[in-house]
Design a protein around this nucleic acid. Structure first.
Lengths: 339, 339
DNA sequence: TTGTAGGCGTTATCAG
DNA sequence: CTGATAACGCCTACAA
């Protein structure tokens, strides 16, 4: 019996013996809902059972329970990578909501690679999770279609795809907010560091920005990038070479924006003075950078909790609709009026 | 039967019927080690069983297995917070190593609060994890002592405490490396943003730095801080007010260092020219900042994998010794020779 | 209101 | 080498 430790091996049997009752009676008291119990056991025995359970420190064995009920109270969570602070913060919300609902999670990184996505999904399913929260959805929803075909309950978070239930930020609106801000400042030549084309986040943020500029009669220059600092750096280098006359750059992610700041400085420009830079997500870092960064705040923690609640609702057989949370522009020194 | 989906309900029984064998035989083939099988089943039946298992897509039910064997192949992982890129990267290593060992993890945030630590430990134990990896150890090891008293197998990662098995970076050495670098550059008046006093990481890094300076005949000024950008900002403000003549500041964490950069700029100083700034962990960000940051690289991913391997070794009844990985100084523009 | 009797899918012990 | 049998802890008809 290797690997054992003093776990509470207090079982229903233990309590039954202590209370001089049958195991089934004990089970009824301990697992039923309040009113179920009321109808199935006398108040005195119920009290006695609960008392013993408390005193002995009874903890139901989750494996036995899962085996019996075919429900594991386990949720699989897939993210591109947890070392992306954005997803990690969303996960904090998921975890909190899980705790409230008596659920636990398996979190796994998929690095936005479809093979990994499939592999990790299978891993989660082999552990018999009740459902999945996917933070790594691609716009072409092939993996999701497969999942739906297997009738696995799942919800998306952060990114949406096809018509699957999701909790996202209104990224299009977020992009518009930045564009309006830039326009008010008088920036006419602007660029967008647009993120990965397979993620709805980057695409919507860029489109919101670009469309708003178009309506105002200007063309915004866009280029894709990875969501990290390096990606932002490279993309901004490209933009500045392509169009040195730019006076504003919107990066769809704070980390990319940091890379943009670096590239701007490398080009001999003063971010905030010569060129406005804005990011997205209002990461903790944004406010604390040497040059505080204008950014769109998205309710990351809330997205996590709502995603879990959405999944719970799906698991209970409902067919809830997706949710889109409101972004908010936070203006800081990285966007000032041009000289 | 709510919340069910097409899970592979192929059981041993299914295979036994298909192959015309007994369940116990099938089990022996499918669960034993290669040589155990060789002694317990004829090659032909073994092949047949494996063939059917493959063809039917058999997946053992982890709950049944856990119930029977009292081993869950589940690991609990506690971190201060996953939105700290450092811990998230360590976790990536843990996850990878888990996958290799057929294990899965529950990751939980404890926010460095002892009550949360205890609560999350209990949560993990109630799920019958086989062991724990703790990334949130405090130097006063009270929670750990409790855990040890309950004979729960666990290892520490990132931080160490008391004599419990751990995988860490040689943080003291890391601090020394920075000090030597600063000394070579001719900095005599220096400060340390030392992080939280309850974390061995911050303490060791500071001490390594301070001791090296002391040996060289100089006094380094130290102040505690939280590990994030805001903490670094506040700490640096304090240091610069206390001793405006400082020409170098070592922050024990890259995020704190970013805060330091901001404070330095706020004070009208040019980081990298007027004052050297160094961080720790060589986060992705360090290289991409507008002013690239000198930092000590710690093998985060490896720390994660080694921690899991250490735990596996503990679980197999061994008494392995702790491991301390080597840091490496990465010099960038934030530390140049003083004018 | 309580007790009895399976069975969820596995593994382990015991005969044959 | 293989098959019967029991048990892990829990839930739930069904019967009393």
């Amino acid at each position: 019996m290797p690997g054992r430790y003093k776990s509470s091996s207090v079982t229903l049997k233990t309590i039954a013996q202590a209370a001089g009752l049958d195991v089934s009676t004990v089970s009824r008291v301990l697992s039923g809902s309040p009113d179920e119990v009321a109808r199935a056991a006398s108040p005195t025995t119920a009290a006695a059972v609960r008392d013993w359970a408390q005193r002995l420190g009874y903890q139901p064995n989750p494996h036995a329970k899962s085996l019996r009920t075919a429900r594991s109270n386990l949720i699989g969570v897939l993210v591109p990578r947890l070392s992306d602070m954005v997803l990690a913060t969303i996960y904090e919300g998921v975890e909190e909501a899980c705790a409230r609902n008596g659920l636990a999670t398996f979190v796994m990184n998929t690095y936005d690679r479809p093979t990994e996505q499939r592999a990790k999904i299978d891993l989660a399913l082999s552990r018999h999770v009740d459902g999945l929260i996917l933070g790594d959805a691609h716009r072409d929803a092939v993996v999701l279609d497969e999942l739906a075909a297997r009738e696995v309950p799942f919800v998306l978070v952060s990114r949406y795809a096809s018509k699957y239930p999701s909790v996202t930020c209104d990224d299009y609106l977020g992009g518009c907010l930045v564009a309006k801000h830039f326009l008010e400042l008088g920036h006419e030549k602007v660029g967008v560091v647009a993120g990965e084309p397979f993620a709805s986040t980057g695409v919507d943020r860029s489109n919101g920005f670009i469309d708003t500029y178009q309506k105002a009669g200007f063309e915004a220059l866009a280029v894709n990038s990875s969501f990290d600092a390096r990606g932002g750096h490279e993309a901004a280098e490209y933009l500045l070479k392509q169009a040195p006359e730019l006076t504003g750059i919107f990066a769809v992610n704070d980390f990319a924006a940091i890379g943009v700041l670096g590239a701007v400085r490398d080009a001999g420009l003063r971010p905030g003075r010569d060129i406005a830079v804005a990011g997205y997500n209002d990461t903790q870092l944004a406010a604390e950078l040497p040059l505080p960064l204008t950014s769109v705040r998205s309710p990351l923690h809330t997205m996590g909790t709502r995603a879990l609640e959405l999944l719970v609702s799906v698991l209970s057989g409902k067919n809830p609709s997706s949710e889109r949370l409101a972004p908010e522009l936070v203006i800081r020194e990285s966007t000032l009026s041009p000289d």
